[in-house]
Structure formats: C-alpha cells, structure tokens
C-alpha cells in the first residue's frame, strides 16, 4: 500500500498527523462488487472442509478493497481535494463468493 494514492493522502484519523486541514469538502465514497471464478470458488469450498485460511477469498477482498479505495480517491480528485480523512470500510456478502466493499471518508484540503 503506497502512502499517497495518486497524490491524495488517505488516513483513517480525524485529523492528518503533522498537517493542518484548511477546508472540508464533504463525503466521498467508492464501492465495488467483485467475485472470483468458479474454479477458485470450488477450491475454496474444498479448503473449507479442512478449515483454516481461505486464501482465494483473502485475495479477492484485498483486491476489491484496493479498488474501492481507488474509486474513493478518484471521487476526491474530481472535486479537487488533496486528502481524504476519517476513512471507514463496510463489507457485505451479497452471495457467497461475491462481496461488496464500500469505502468512504471526508475529502479535505490541507496545508
């Protein structure tokens, strides 16, 4: 994870450590629904019998989360913000094997 995504600073604290927020510009958000292919689903189903980590789904959620953050950052860029603070994540499983990831935060300008 890079510290600055496309020139936009992303933090999940209310303020940016070491910086001063000059202007808040409202809520920005990004979401994505992704699924793995049937083969990986079947493999995850087999792995589930013996228990432990389901690596396919870990990967799936990691990729989708990065995509959701990317979309949130694109949203922030489109309104001319320089940082997104107080980022929160929400996850919901739509069907087993497909997950919706939602990232939201407050777009701000900082000094």
């Amino acid at each position: 994870m890079q510290q600055v995504v496309n020139g936009i600073l992303v933090v999940n604290t209310e303020t940016i450590p070491g910086k001063v927020i000059t202007e808040t510009m409202g809520v920005v958000s990004g979401s994505t629904v992704r699924a793995k292919n049937v083969g990986k689903d079947i493999f995850a189903g087999l792995k589930n019998i013996v228990g432990g980590e389901l690596t396919q789904y870990t990967e799936l959620l990691q990729e989708s989360r990065n995509e959701a953050v990317g979309r949130m950052v694109a949203d922030a860029m489109s309104i001319g913000a320089t940082a997104v603070v107080n980022v929160r994540f929400a996850t919901s499983a739509i069907t087993a094997g497909a997950a919706e990831l939602f990232a939201y935060g407050t777009a701000v300008k900082y000094e």
């Binding site: 600073l9 940016i16 450590p17 589930n48 432990g52 989360r65 953050v69």
Partner: peptide, 21 residues
C-alpha cells in the same frame, strides 16, 4: 509532533472452521 508523513495501512484474512469443527 514531528510527523513527516501519514497514510492508510490495512491487512485482511478470511478464516473458516473445518467441517469437523
């Protein structure tokens, strides 16, 4: 107070109990 930079860091994992469990 001497912070030079900040950024998001995240990690995840999906874990399931075995059918025996």
């Amino acid at each position: 107070t001497d912070v030079s930079s900040a950024g998001l860091v995240h990690a995840n994992g999906v874990f399931g109990p075995s059918h025996w469990h």
